[in-house]
């Protein structure tokens, strides 16, 4: 039940707790509440759960998993 799915913001509307937006997941578009990601803008990825954005996906961190893999492969040879 605690799954949250990453989607890309394609529009933003409203403010405060009524800040909403359209978010694209692959080929599906949904209207979601963006109140808790006040600094997220169009084009950014957010994690959506139960119709609410829980947080942004931090682009700079997204590749770290592969960098870490390279590092450990160097250690283990």
């Amino acid at each position: 039940m605690c799954l949250a799915i990453p989607g890309r913001i394609i529009s933003v509307d409203g403010e405060g707790l009524l800040r909403t937006g359209r978010v694209e997941f692959g080929s599906i578009i949904k209207e979601v509440n963006l109140a808790f990601v006040p600094d997220a803008v169009v084009g950014e990825y957010v994690l959506i759960h139960a119709g609410i954005a829980l947080g942004k996906v931090v682009e700079e961190e997204a590749q770290r998993i592969f960098g870490y893999l390279e590092e450990i492969n160097e250690i283990h040879g």
Binding site: C2, N33, H49
Partner: peptide, 30 residues
């Protein structure tokens, strides 16, 4: 989403709309 339940409540003022709020911390913001 629980927000859908609020919408249903808005549309059906003559009914009692109850949402079963089950979840961990993840679901609490909604």
């Amino acid at each position: 989403s629980p927000l859908d339940a609020v919408k249903i409540a808005r549309k059906n003022p003559d009914k009692e709309v109850v949402f079963f709020a089950v979840g961990f911390e993840t679901t609490a913001p909604a």
